[in-house]
């Protein structure tokens, strides 16, 4: 399994943000995207995950292989931690949620309503959801926000286990996770140049 992204051009609000992005991630590898705020990392990740169409270019794997975690955790406050995870396990058709609970040290919190969790605990639950999906490609946008150092370690362990199991990961993060398998890609050079004014729809863009 290999994720090949070739000449991908992504848009936000009809404006090109990143142009001709190409990279490849093999099974067992992680790629960390770097770049200043607003450069379009989120847009790139959403496009790779198939949530929005690309203007040009190709992503070799289809969205059925990917699990996406954005800024929001997708947690329902009235449901317990177990119920939240069980729901996603049922939707993605995977079995037990025990490994996910264990990976993010949530066992003690399993029966607690998700609404009663702290921000960091919620984040851990959101990340545990990725384990539950059973998808080989993890696409994650700022996964370490509001995690403390020990939780970041947990997360790094989980990613490592995922990679060891033949998965691959695409992350946008500023924190060094200490992953030996991770390569870093600076998306800065892909910043889109303003389009020529003489295009077909040149009067617009």
């Amino acid at each position: 399994m290999e994720l090949n992204v070739s000449d991908l051009t992504v848009t936000r609000g009809g404006i090109k943000v990143l142009e001709d992005v190409s990279f490849a991630v093999k099974a067992g590898e992680a790629l960390v995207l770097r770049g200043p705020n607003g450069i379009g990392k989120t847009t790139l990740l959403r496009t790779v995950a198939g949530l929005q169409p690309a203007l040009r270019g190709e992503v070799s794997l289809d969205r059925e292989q990917m699990a996406y975690a954005g800024h929001a955790d997708g947690i329902k406050a009235p449901l317990s931690v177990t119920e939240n995870l069980e729901f996603w396990a049922a939707v993605f058709g995977t079995g037990s949620i025990a490994p996910a609970l264990q990976a993010f040290d949530l066992e003690a919190l399993a029966a607690r309503p998700a609404g009663a969790l702290s921000a960091g605990q919620k984040r851990r639950l959101g990340l545990a959801r990725m384990v539950v999906t059973g998808r080989p490609v993890w696409v994650m946008d700022e996964p370490t926000v509001s995690l403390d150092t020990s939780a970041v370690q947990l997360f790094a362990e989980a990613v490592r286990a995922h990679l060891a199991g033949g998965g691959l990961a695409l992350l946008a993060t500023h924190i060094d996770l200490g992953l030996a398998e991770a390569r870093v890609l600076d998306v800065g050079p892909f910043k889109a140049k303003p389009p020529a004014l003489e295009d077909f729809d040149g009067a617009f863009l």
């Binding site: 959403r46 995950a49 198939g50 949530l51 969205r63 990917m66 699990a67 996406y68 975690a69 954005g70 800024h71 929001a72 955790d73 997708g74 947690i75 329902k76 996603w88 939707v91 993605f92 959801r129």
Partner: peptide, 10 residues
């Protein structure tokens, strides 16, 4: 809460 993004990739 972002569930819709996840459901869309489900």
């Amino acid at each position: 809460d972002g569930s819709l993004d996840l459901l869309a990739t489900a």
